[in-house]
Design a protein around this nucleic acid. Structure first.
Length: 941
RNA sequence: GCCGUGGUGGUGGAAUAGGUAGACACGAAGGACUUAAAAUCCUUUGACCUAAACAGUCGUGCGGGUUCAAGUCCCGCCCACGGUACCA
């Protein structure tokens, strides 16, 4: 009986689809379980073998949970808005919607071939109006909410208005515009002039997580700082809750740590420094507020530094220094982020102003320097050169005094940044440990009113506008230059059809090209731009939302994706509650995984969802890297460019340094052996290729002219990113065509631990394929009858192992367990139906197609995916005799076979009674005997 | 710099409570079948010592420690990968 995977896989995929076995209902007696994959961006290149790694893992887990009797929600969808489709549109004129839909269709067909248990009826696409309706709706709710710092939750903006009306007599005197401007400072989605990351090449602003080292993450173009009027989400209001929530979820430590660093909580103090004789003002009128985590070091302050953007700068610069300071500010403004990072030379300028030290009353000079950031703390610092390396460098450059504050710290060469030691030169703090000094100082400044204890977060608000076309339109129109919401009842506000995707001539975002793009309040309609002469018609927002908008709540939509009335109904949300297991890559740690937690917490405050953390358990699958192969073209004397040297020979003196490695398509290389005929067909350039083979022979040496030979051309290899340009992209379709989806699934798991990055290396895929063939052969003729004790032992060992593995996401070790069981059972000649059908169930999460075929072979006409997960019985795992290794002082001397039933004391006695023990002891008395039950006996002599 | 993760044969990797290190697979070598090849099956495969066997010694990045017993726990380093950074 041959293993015809093609036939088996096609047949069962069709039968699953016809029977609708993966349809999930929100009404079930069963307990719910939600297993989610991070949905993909459908790129033009299609899936490569790296994508399915996480999907296979989540599919195994969901199938297992199903077999255990849960109602499992396991959906798939597409993060369909994004830059690449738009850039492709600009290049080719093809509408992004068209290319996106084509790409999605390709992804779906590829995913279906792998045999995932997705309920495709629940598919979502972020670019679908039915979906982005709820993205726009959530934005509108954020616009209509503010963050109440007392209740620590979002509240309707109307409550704030009511409060202003009651407590602030000036409120009623403000114009509508002034009121709106004031409210804008509280809204969770707000419009403001913000310093943003502007990427000229992409023509859009980017969020902090979309920029790395001054370059855009997508494309790698330079990013500069610019002040623009932009939408932002007040994520920073949730910083405390985002941090605290991490303690309640089951994520890896590394990921939690990454988020903690990104949120960047630091507890410190804000302190006021008075400026001496500010020009034109009486003393004590100007205070500089600074933030520090090292209040204990205040006696070491020898100067102060302001960020170039700080508003303090213009307030206290003296006339004689004005020109110099302005020149410096101008220079800072024109430096890009990248230049600033690359060039760490100390720069700065003196303002001419002096502050008064709050304790010593010494005069301390105030400088401006770009090493102080305007966006963090107060944009001003007290500098303690002895104990901060940046202050130290600055002090050295400007010859400012350095006062050591910690006993024994040598600050002649560098600063002493550690938070430990005993304080000196610090008045009432002298003699205290640093930690005590910090605490005492905080108390002191609170009591004296010099400052206050303050918690600062590094997390910034998320910039939410993008000057591009292919994204969700804002449900916003402008009146008197202030934004207003289009009513919920008019959502979704659909993206207008365009054929131009670049900014307009006047510099507006692409949506400026649209004809139908203005809001009529009289009849609640979006109308033609040309008609804006009637006073009731207002222009719409022309920016669109960023990529993370659509991906922030998609997991909620899967729960209830057909709902026309709400993002998710209360019943559906109460039933599924949250994602139990979420699988995806670490690259989303500071983007999507922060934004969606924020978004979910906001919806939680609104009472829309019942859990405030959306993802209970998070598994990070590692990246699959490419494994590139190389051929070595001879470029030495007399080279024709057609001769290629086998990898094992390239270090020979005749070829050394005379070969050029060339990437070769990995799909024509098998186990590092080149298919030379396929190579000649790869490109015209290689048509006449000749080879020096591994054994040193050439094509001419071939004794079997024109016939297959055992000559082998060995390729070199390297681990690189999987990409087209490295010719190392492996398409899952090709693997499925050659080995079948079940082999692909199992091999992806066999490759190594899920969380680890590893190269895709097809060495070894044959092993998995062979295993499935051998296993299949056992199902030729299942026989009735009682299994033997050995058969049951093998089977129950397997049940226990596979169950443990799946629950612990340790899928890679399951495959060897299957192989061992297969070997054991076939050695025993087992073909008992009851054993085989149990194995089919165990295999079903990993290799569902062949498992169905096996289940059928055992005489069932139901689906194995609906079977019940078996349990194991420890009694079958027990052996009659156990081999106890007997050690003397930890060294194994011999092994003794003893009955399983013996207890510790009996084992001890039996060991002491054995002749071999007596011989080894040679009359000595053992000091101690250690018996590890069922494992080992150690005699200490 | 800081944070995180990891380092085990020729290769990918097992070892789930401190208890027989190297499971399983690949590769390699030898063999069976075959005109030949593919496929399949069998044997060997950490290193050293040995003609071989037995026995022995060494062996989980390096150096120490705890323990009857350490890949596993503790201390100090080194290296690789990932994240992040003038965050006061």
């Amino acid at each position: 009986m041959e293993y015809n995977f093609k036939q088996i896989e096609q047949y069962w995929q069709q039968r699953w689809a016809e029977a609708g076995v993966y349809k999930v209902s929100n009404k079930s007696e069963k307990k719910p379980f939600y297993v989610l994959d991070m949905f993909p961006y459908p790129s033009g290149a299609g899936l490569h073998v790296g994508h399915p790694l996480g999907y296979v893992a989540s599919d195994i887990y969901s199938r297992y949970k199903r077999l255990c009797g849960y109602n499992v929600l396991h959906p798939m969808g597409f993060d369909a808005y994004g830059l690449p489709a738009e850039q492709y549109a600009i290049k080719t004129g093809q509408h992004p919607e068209k290319t996106t839909n084509e790409n999605i269709a390709r992804y779906i067909s590829q995913l279906k071939k792998i045999g995932f248990s997705y309920d495709w009826d629940r598919e979502v696409r972020t670019c679908d109006p039915d979906f982005y309706h709820w993205t726009q709706w959530a934005f509108a709710q954020m616009f209509n909410s503010y963050y109440d710092t007392v209740q620590q939750k979002a509240r309707p903006i109307s409550e704030l208005v009511a409060r202003f009306e009651q407590t602030d007599p000036t409120w009623a005197t403000l114009t509508e515009k002034e009121q709106q401007e004031r409210l804008m400072q509280y809204r969770i989605a707000y419009l403001s002039d913000t310093k943003v990351n502007w990427c000229p090449k992409l023509g859009t602003v980017l969020a902090n997580d979309e920029v790395s080292e001054g370059l855009s993450v997508r494309g790698g173009y330079p990013v500069e700082q610019r002040v623009m009027r932009q939408w932002s989400l007040r994520v920073s209001a949730y910083a405390g809750r985002l941090l605290e929530g991490l303690d309640r979820i089951d994520w890896t430590d590394s990921l939690k740590e990454t988020q903690r660093n990104w949120i960047g909580k630091s507890e410190g103090a804000e302190m006021n420094f008075t400026i001496k004789n500010p020009k034109g003002k009486t003393e004590n009128e100007v205070n500089i507020k600074i933030f520090t985590t090292r209040a204990d070091t205040i006696f070491g302050v020898t100067f102060m530094v302001l960020a170039p953007e700080s508003e303090y700068v213009s307030m206290l610069v003296t006339d004689e220094h004005r020109e110099e300071v302005e020149a410096y500010l101008d220079r800072c403004k024109h430096r890009t982020e990248r230049e600033r990072i690359a060039d760490r030379h100390v720069t700065g300028v003196f303002t001419g102003a002096y502050a008064i030290h709050p304790f010593t009353h010494a005069e301390i000079p105030v400088y401006v320097s770009d090493y102080v950031l305007s966006g963090y703390g107060t944009g001003a610092i007290m500098a303690v050169p002895a104990h901060d390396s940046r202050d130290y460098a600055f002090a050295r450059h400007f010859n400012l005094p350095i006062i050591p504050l910690i006993e024994g710290a040598d600050v002649s060469e560098q600063s002493f940044d550690a938070k430990e030691g005993r304080m000196i030169n610090s008045d009432f703090l002298n003699g205290l440990e640093v930690k005590e000094a910090i605490a005492k100082m905080k108390e002191y400044i609170t009591n004296t009113g010099i400052g206050r204890v303050k918690v600062n977060y590094r997390l910034r608000d998320a910039i939410f506008s993008r000057q591009r076309y292919w994204g969700e339109p804002f449900p916003v129109y402008y009146k008197d230059n202030m934004p207003y919401l289009i009513p919920d009842s008019c959502l979704p506000l659909c993206l207008p059809e365009l054929d131009k995707f670049l900014p307009t001539e006047t510099g507006e975002p692409p949506l400026g090209h649209a004809d139908m793009w203005a809001w009529n309040t009289a009849n609640n309609k979006v109308v033609s731009k040309q008609l804006i002469d009637n006073k009731t018609i207002f222009p719409l927002e022309l920016c669109t939302m960023p990529g993370f908008a659509g991906s922030s709540a998609y997991y909620l939509r899967y729960m209830d994706n057909q709902n026309k009335e709400a993002l998710v109904s209360r019943e559906a949300n109460d039933y599924w509650r949250k994602v139990n297991v979420y699988i995806g890559g670490t690259e989303h740690a500071t983007g999507h995984l922060i934004y969606s937690r924020f978004w979910n917490k906001f919806l939680f405050d609104l009472g829309v969802v019942c859990e405030d953390e959306p993802f209970q358990k998070l598994i990070n699958q590692g990246m699959i890297q490419g494994r590139s192969n190389f051929v070595y073209r001879y470029i030495g004397e007399g080279a024709t460019g057609n001769l290629y040297i086998s990898y094992n020979l390239i270090d020979n003196p005749e070829y050394k340094d005379k070969v050029q490695p060339i990437h070769v398509n990995v799909n024509i290389v098998h186990n590092d052996i080149l298919d030379v005929d396929a190579f000649r067909l790869e490109s015209p350039e290689y048509k006449n290729a000749t080879f020096i083979y591994a054994d040193g022979s050439t094509d001419e040496d071939n004794p079997y002219m024109g016939q297959a030979t055992n000559k082998q051309y060995i390729c070199g290899w390297a681990v690189e990113k999987m990409s087209k340009s490295m010719y190392n992209v492996v398409n899952p379709d090709d693997v499925i065509a050659a080995y079948g989806a079940d082999t692909l699934r199992m091999y992806e798991m066999f490759l190594g631990p899920l969380e680890m990055s590893k190269p895709w290396d097809t060495k070894g895929i044959d092993g998995v394929s062979r295993f499935l063939k051998k296993l299949w052969n056992m199902y030729a003729e299942p026989a009735d009858g009682e299994p033997t004790r050995e058969e049951l032992r093998s089977l129950h060992k397997l049940i226990k192992k596979i169950t443990w593995d799946i629950e612990n996401f340790s899928f890679n070790t399951s495959i060897p367990a299957f192989m061992i069981a297969q070997t054991e059972l076939s050695t025993l000649g087992c073909n008992k139906r009851c054993v085989l059908e149990t194995i089919a169930i165990l295999l079903a999460p990993y290799a569902p197609h062949i498992a169905e075929a096996m289940w059928q072979q055992c005489g069932h006409n139901t689906f194995v995916v609906d079977a019940q997960w078996p349990t194991w019985d420890e009694k079958y795992l027990e052996e009659d005799n156990i081999n106890y290794p007997v050690q003397f002082n930890g060294k194994v001397r011999f092994t003794l076979s003893l009955p399983k039933t013996m207890d510790k004391t009996a084992v001890e006695q039996a060991v002491m009674a054995s002749d071999e023990t007596k011989r080894q002891l040679a009359g000595d008395t053992p000091k101690r005997i250690i018996v590890v039950p069922g494992r080992i006996v150690n005699i200490v002599v």
